[in-house]
Write a protein that binds this DNA or RNA. Structure first.
Lengths: 346, 346
DNA sequence: CGGAAGACCGAAAAGGTTTTCAGGAACGTA
DNA sequence: TACGTTCCTGAAAACCTTTTCGGTCTTCCG
C-alpha cells in the first residue's frame, strides 16, 4: 500500500490510472471514464472536475486495456521485405502518414527478404492483435500470399500477391512507359530509344510495353531496333548508350528505365558531345531525387507516386477493418516530373 | 484423429483464447497457462495435452493482456524526424534488427521535423505503454531533449540531445575525418585538399577537424589553403573542385565531406583529364551505395556504421528497461570502405 | 494403517478500461 | 402526498492472461 506520494517520485507523467483520476475528482471510475470520453450521461460540471483532475495527473489512458475491451488494438503491421531498398520507404511514409491522422500506430517489421523471418514477424504481429497488415514487397513482381485464413485484413503494396483473392496495390508501369514516351513525342521527338534494366522484372517489361504502345499509336518505330534490357545500373546505362549510338547515331531521345540508367546515359552523351536536351532528350524513371536533381542537366523522370500508394493502402486497410476487403489488383497512376533534360525552355 | 471440421470456418488462426485451449485440453485456465509457459508445476503428460490443444486451435496469447499484467508491453517507439532522409533508415534497420531477436516490436513514428507532431506521437506512444524510446534526429547536431520526467528510458541516436543528462549515441565524425586522411597519407599522398558541405553542420566541422589533426601530426599543410565548405551537393563538389584546381593545380588527393560532393569532384577531374586515382585520389563520406559503387571509379569512402549505431541503441535501451540508463554522449567509430578511387591495384 | 511430504491442479485476484444496468436525487404533476 | 420523469452516478461484469495460494491426491515411511 503505497500512499501515492506525488512529490518524491520523478515520474510525474503517464503512469496514473483512471482510478487515481476518479479519486482525485471525487467520482467513480465509471463516471470518470464517461467524462473523458465525451459520453453524454454526465453533468458538465462533473465532467469539468474530471478533466481537471486528469490534467493535473497528466493522465493518459492505457491503450492496452482499451484494446482488450474494444477488441481493437489501434495498431497495424507494416511488413516489408527490404527496408534497405529505396522503394519501401516512401510507401511506408505514406502509410504512416495516413494512419497517423487517425489514431493508429504502425509496427514496422523488416523481413529482410527471408520467408522464415516473415512468418516469425507475422506470428508476433497477430499476437499483438494488430487490426490489419500491409505487406510491402521488394520488387514489383508477384509474391506469395500470406494465406487466406488470417484473422485480419491484409493489403499487398508494390508487389502484388500471387493469390487473386487478395487485394494488391501496384504502380501502373505500363502507364508510366506511355507517359514517358508521350512526353517525348509532344516535344517533337521522333527517334526514341529505350534502355531499361533487368528483363526478368515485370516492371521492365511493362514500361517497355507502355512505351511501344504509345509509339505504335503514333506510327513511330522504336529507335535502336530493340529495347536494350540489361541491369539497373549506371554502368549498363553507359554501355547500352555507347552501343546504341553506334547502331543508330541520330536518335533524338532516350527513355531510360530508371534514373540510375539515365545517369549513365547522360554521362556518355556528355562524352560524345551530344547536347542534352537540344540534340538528345533524356527521361528517367523513379524520380529518385538524389540522382535526378543532381544530374546534369536535372532529369525529367516518372514518379511512381509511391507515397500516394502507401496512403491509399492505409485508407483501404482502414475502411476494411470493420467492413470487408475487396480483391484483385488496383493500380496507382504515376506522374511526370518535368526538368531540364527533356524540356528546352521555349 | 478428430475431424474438427476445418473446412467450414475461415478463421482458423489467431483468435482462440486460453480458455478455449484449456477447455479442449480438459484442464483449468491456470494449468493451461503454466503448461504453455514452461512452468514446472505441471505434469509432462498434461503439458503435452495442452500444447497439442493449443496447436490445434493455433492459439497465440494476447499480448495486450500479457502486457497489462506484466506492466511491460514489449514494444518500443522509434521517433524519427526525417524518414525521407537517408540517415534514419540504417539506424532504424539496426534497431529493428536488434529488437527483433528479442521479442520486442517497434512502433515507427515520423515527425517530419515538426515539433508539434513529435509531441503528438510521444503522447500516443506513452499511451501505448512503450517500454522505451529511441529518438533519431534529422541532422547530426544537438536537438531539444524530450524532457527528464518521462516514465520510460529514452535514447537519442544520430542527433544528440541538448540535455547532458540524456544518453546520446552519435557517430565519431572527428575520427572519420582522421580515418580518411590517414588512409590517403598511408598511400603516399601529400597534397591533400578537403571539400565539404554546409559549415553550419557540426559534422562538417568535426570531419574537417579530424582531417586537420591528422595532417598536423604528419606536419603536412592542407592543400588548397582552406577547407572548402559549401553545400552537400554534387554541384558544389563540381564548383569547388574547379576553384580548387585553379588555386592549387597539383594536389594529389581530395577528401570530400560526402559521397555526393565526391561525385561532383570526380566529374570535374574527368573533365580536366586528371586520372583517378593515379594522379588524384578521391575519398568520400557516408558510403551511400548508390553513389559510391556506381561512381567511376568506385568510391573509397567512410561508412558511419549507422546500422551498428541503431543496434547499439537498441541494446542500450533494452538493458536500460529494467536497469537504469547512463547519460552523456557515446560515439560509434566509423570504418573505411576501400574501393578504387584511392587504391591503385598494386 | 496413520500420517507427512510432495506433486499436481484449480479458484480467484489482479492489471486498467469500457459499458450496462440499476438505483438515487431532483423535479414537476396529479 | 404520492408518483412518474428525467438526469446523473456507481457497482459490477467483461476483455485475456499470469500468478498466488489453498486444496486434493498419491506415495512413502514409520
Amino acid at each position: 500500500m503505497e500512499p501515492a506520494s506525488s512529490a518524491d517520485g520523478p515520474r510525474t507523467t503517464g503512469r496514473s490510472t483512471l482510478r487515481d483520476v476518479a479519486k482525485l475528482a471525487g467520482v467513480s471510475i465509471a463516471t470518470a471514464s464517461k467524462a473523458l470520453n465525451n459520453q453524454p450521461q454526465v453533468r458538465a460540471e462533473t465532467r469539468a472536475k474530471v478533466i481537471q483532475a486528469a490534467e493535473q495527473l497528466s493522465f493518459s489512458p492505457n491503450t492496452l486495456a482499451q484494446g482488450l475491451i474494444t477488441q481493437r488494438s489501434g495498431t497495424v503491421g507494416l511488413l516489408t521485405s527490404d527496408l534497405e531498398g529505396r522503394f519501401s520507404i516512401p510507401i511506408l511514409m505514406g502509410a504512416e502518414d495516413a494512419f497517423g491522422s487517425d489514431q493508429t500506430s504502425v509496427f514496422l517489421c523488416d523481413a529482410r527478404g527471408d520467408t522464415l523471418r516473415e512468418r516469425h514477424h507475422l506470428r508476433a504481429l497477430l499476437s499483438r492483435r494488430v487490426d490489419g497488415l500491409i505487406v510491402v514487397g521488394a520488387r514489383p513482381d508477384a509474391r506469395p500470399s500470406l494465406g487466406r485464413d488470417l484473422p485480419v485484413p491484409v493489403i499487398y503494396a508494390y508487389s502484388p500477391s500471387d493469390d487473386p483473392a487478395d487485394l494488391s496495390l501496384v504502380t501502373d508501369n505500363v502507364g508510366g512507359g506511355r507517359l514517358a514516351v508521350d512526353h517525348l513525342i509532344r516535344h517533337g521527338r521522333r527517334r526514341i530509344a529505350h534502355i531499361s534494366g533487368d528483363p526478368s522484372y515485370g516492371a521492365a517489361q511493362d514500361r517497355a510495353r507502355g512505351a511501344l504502345d504509345r509509339l505504335g499509336e503514333e506510327g513511330l518505330p522504336l529507335a535502336g531496333d530493340q529495347v536494350w534490357f540489361g541491369a539497373w545500373s549506371e554502368a549498363w546505362g553507359r554501355g547500352a548508350t555507347r552501343m546504341l549510338l553506334q547502331r543508330d547515331p541520330d536518335i533524338d531521345a532516350i527513355f531510360a528505365g530508371s534514373d540510375e540508367i539515365a545517369r549513365g546515359v547522360l554521362d556518355v552523351l556528355h562524352q560524345e558531345k551530344l547536347a542534352v536536351p537540344t540534340q538528345v532528350a533524356v527521361i528517367g524513371f523513379d524520380n529518385w531525387n538524389i540522382l535526378a536533381v543532381n544530374a546534369r542537366p536535372p532529369l525529367t523522370t516518372i514518379d511512381m507516386n509511391l507515397e500516394a500508394l502507401g496512403r491509399l493502402a492505409a485508407q483501404r486497410l482502414f475502411s476494411a477493418i470493420d467492413g470487408t476487403l475487396g480483391s484483385g489488383v488496383e493500380t496507382v497512376a504515376p506522374r511526370l516530373i518535368t526538368r531540364e533534360s527533356t524540356a528546352p525552355l521555349d
